[in-house]
Design a protein around this nucleic acid. Structure first.
Lengths: 347, 347
DNA sequence: TAATAACATGTTATCGATAACACAATAGGA
DNA sequence: TCCTATTGTGTTATCGATAACATGTTATTA
């Protein structure tokens, strides 16, 4: 057992030399396929074992022009949403043999977006997953720059657009379900606390609330809505405003669970009994929401699944491009579901 | 303006050819340093601009034997803790010019650990951050395998060991602060709901509770402790057990905020008034805890900072190795702090 | 038995960059 | 003026693998 210099990595040449074959043969053994005699194979494998040879994925990427890495662009990793999604991405990527090259962005300036994409492309990622919310027109660059991006790119939680692929939770439908549930419990005056409406997701949820009320002929001339910023603090505050203007509210659909928590707290402070006087329904189904007081009815969006599907789809796109097939860009939706708990018990 | 084939990447050769210089000169222009005449520089830069040349970081990594990538090994990304840490890591890495190559593990078998490390090394990461909890002896491989890992490695949240570098929150000290706070409020019968004690972090928090009570001469012959699994459900259940056995409890230190939420809920169910009859203190300071009912006193651990420091340290280790200096392995602690809220108001 | 297919292996070029070295051309100092 | 140091640029080798091609050896088939 020869111990070579610790610092130096064992290369395919070392193996070839030690086994008395060409590097090409070693490469063949490592990658299966192609013909190698049993005898040679065993000899090479023995040497590989002995020298603890591990091929350089880096060199392989360079020569194959393929890295088996996915570029992940995220925003707001400290929040639970993105990290759940990443979790699903990581699982599926692992299963399909891809690694993740991550880059977090903290703003949406054109230059920073350019830089991020360049840095991923420079490392030869095979595809890019854009895991960042659509806020205002921060996705407008997509149309112009799309042609410059030389690898498949898939957007998560983006408003559907022609000729761009995306996967999103059906926020609109989720909101519809929430409001229908409240209606079915006999609630008549249903308010809404939205997320920042410049966010596409927040806007969709709001639209779902509004259109559902319209569709059953409810008066929405009075605009029973306040805007928060996803935080519990903002939920608490928005609910205060709402109650000030509409003391007769008997239900509120809140755009996420964190804000719902703020609502519940403020309700207690004001002596409003939930659900007797006021039904509350959230969105997301964070694990804690089952232990709020009262436990929170909410719309469950499966972000883990979203991440998994995203990887599945982008890998298909990568394979298609590899085989020179072209695939239709497509926008997909994942359906959320209703989780009924105490905060909306029928009265 | 010549539009070349979309598919083909612009290489240094294309630039060299177009500018009428050697590739080496282009390389010199791209990397500053070294002598290039002003005239040549401008000509090359113009061509770079025109062809939209972006150097391949991949090729550079191969030839420089340096990738400016950090390997990140995580566990339990779906929980908020790890993702907060990753957030800090991502920020600092970006600042220092590193990208993150992520790999999530879901179990701790020796083979899977081997595989993970190999896959990172195969891609030539410059260093590895191990962002996974120490559970039982799942870190025992470190001692044996350390020599095989050819790049610096830094562990987060690991029990200090000689000749291994780590950064952790001082869980013991956090627990001490929590219990001292309860004592200073005049609480006499202080229970504990721990995390899974096979986790080093959980064990440290428990030890802090125990030793603090011992140090002030409190009777700990009665073992006022129950074990949870970090979830709200387990907190609720553990608290039930605890009250069954020790109905006279006047305070409880809970090993994380999620479990505390379960405790608060169960306390309400049992008609126990918090904080009048029972003080509750958690650990972590998740954003929601300020909006629990009552709002939760807790120990704040700055995971973001933990991540940032980790990157800072590993980059120093990388630089040291690059310059062939050796650095002492060191275990570091980050101090948590006490956040007082309603759930422990003095009576 | 000769032609052909399947198997087995080696050689050379390539992926896209940088390192190391070589060699001019200029500038400054003795 | 000659020598040396500083600049500026090109050439060749290298990083660690695979692709493409070439070639030799068996086995199969007509």
């Amino acid at each position: 057992m020869i111990l070579s210099d610790r610092r130096k990595r064992v290369t395919i040449k070392d193996v070839a030399l030690a086994a008395g074959v060409s590097t090409q043969t070693v490469s063949r053994v490592m990658n299966k396929f192609s013909y190698v005699s049993e005898k040679t194979r065993q000899r090479v494998e023995a040497v590989v074992e002995q020298l603890a040879y591990h091929p350089s994925a880096l060199a392989r990427s360079l020569s194959q022009q393929r890295s088996f890495m996915l570029g992940i662009v995220t925003f707001g990793l400290k929040y639970i949403g993105p990290s759940r999604t990443i979790n699903g991405i990581a699982d599926k990527a692992d299963e399909l043999g891809y690694m993740l090259l991550m880059k977090e962005i903290d703003k949406f300036s054109t230059t920073s977006i350019d830089e991020v994409i360049d840095s991923l492309l420079a490392r030869q990622v095979d595809g890019i997953l854009w895991v960042a919310p659509e806020i205002g027109d921060n996705h407008s660059w997509v149309e112009e720059q799309k042609s410059k991006i030389t690898v498949p790119i898939l957007f998560l939680a983006m408003k559907p657009r022609d000729s761009i692929s995306s996967v999103s939770t059906d926020n609109f439908q989720g909101a519809v379900m929430a409001v229908q549930h409240l209606l079915s419990c006999g609630r008549k005056r249903i308010g809404h606390i939205s997320g920042p409406v410049s966010w596409w997701e927040a806007d969709e949820r709001k639209r779902g609330w509004q259109e559902t009320l319209n569709s059953v002929g409810f008066d929405t001339s009075e605009y029973r809505c306040a805007e928060g910023n996803w935080s519990s603090a903002s939920g608490e505050q928005a609910f205060g405003q709402l109650m000030q203007k509409f003391p007769d509210l008997d239900a509120v659909f809140v755009a996420n669970d964190q804000m719902s928590l703020g609502v519940l707290r403020e309700a207690i402070r004001r002596g409003i009994r939930v659900p007797e006087q006021l039904a509350v329904i959230g969105f997301d189904n964070i694990p804690e929401s089952a232990y709020f007081y009262p436990s929170l009815t909410t719309i469950y969006q499966d972000l883990q699944l979203l991440g998994e599907q995203a990887v599945q789809i982008i890998v298909e796109m990568i394979q298609a491009r590899q085989e020179n097939r072209s695939v239709m860009a497509r926008s997909r939706f994942i359906q959320p579901s209703l989780v009924v708990r105490e905060s909306s018990r029928c009265v």
